[in-house]
Nucleic acid binder design. Sequence first.
DNA 1: TGGCGATGTCAACACTTGTTGGCCTACACT
DNA 2: AGTGTAGGCCAACAAGTGTTGACATCGCCA
Lengths: 188, 188
Amino acid sequence: MTTTKAKRSDTTKEAILAAARERFAEDGYERATIRAIAADAGIDPSMVMRYFGNKEKLFAAAAEFDLRLPDVTTMSKDEVGHRLAGHVVDRWDGDETLMALLRAAVTNTAAVERMREIFAAQLGPAVAAVAPDAVATRAGLVATQVLGIALTRYVLRLPPVVAMGREELVAWIGPTLQRYLTDPHPTA
Amino acid sequence: MTTTKAKRSDTTKEAILAAARERFAEDGYERATIRAIAADAGIDPSMVMRYFGNKEKLFAAAAEFDLRLPDVTTMSKDEVGHRLAGHVVDRWDGDETLMALLRAAVTNTAAVERMREIFAAQLGPAVAAVAPDAVATRAGLVATQVLGIALTRYVLRLPPVVAMGREELVAWIGPTLQRYLTDPHPTA
DNA sequence: TGGCGATGTCAACACTTGTTGGCCTACACT
DNA sequence: AGTGTAGGCCAACAAGTGTTGACATCGCCA
């Protein structure tokens, strides 16, 4: 153990969080009910309230998300697009937190605020390390493509986007991100 | 009038649809209540049921959407990306139907099905007219970028994406779409 | 004028939701 | 052993939901 001994409550607390992430990811904020989450975690709904206060706070705790972007300063400037594309695709398979956040952000004010924070605080600095100018704009453009993938591949599940293999998808998306990151600003 | 004389019921029916589009676009499927829609339309909730049967059918009627893609066969093959980018940005300002559809599609099964239909039936053929091969894949890629814009600019409202002017946005997005449409297939 | 269908309102139903407070039980510590 | 407290359950509340059926009213046509 890295910290102190695990109390029994921490176990169920973690079970609640896991169930919450799953439900929020699958059903969105409003359709994910506290009763269903509690049932999945094998406990009473009132326990959820005791540990997290209310539904909004539960969501906030469950939707903690780290993009875990790689250190862009260690790679050559012209492969960063490709590497970034590969990373986000990998990052979103096997973690439903981003899907929970995305699904909830479409109807929930707190979730959309969290989403803005994540992209400003995590994507922004990474872009700043490689972009020659217009950092915010370039980060925004990257977000459009990257969230567009998340939306169509994992939420809407558009068949051709789902059908693409990881390598094929990365090969298509990589150059786009590269251009958004390092191409000269087009005349507006 | 092109058709027969307008019955009085058609007027309120249209008022209901307008209110529904607005509410669905702003709140998403579950948070948009029939009572609120009826109040906006200035009538009783039961009228909504009489005219549309239930909430799902009301949504289906309100979320009828036409991309109104321009005829791509009349333009030169290397400007189609730019033109397409301009079109979708214009199409989404001033029509909240797409936003209603997008917000609802994230939690509602019928809405996501409608979304798939729209992109298969409307975007697919347009892509087929200019793409050398892999039509479905290319259409899917276009969808990722185009819906990514819709998501980040009109739903999440990420500040840098909102701040971009129409021309600047089109100048950035155009080449991306162009590449997805006509560039040779990258080796997977 | 009488009547009848279209248009609309009112009140209620059955149900689900988030949320609360009281009660029970088991375990740790003295 | 006794006891206090953390962990957990049960039942209920108040509010809001989609939906329904009975009743009122307007406007047209014979």
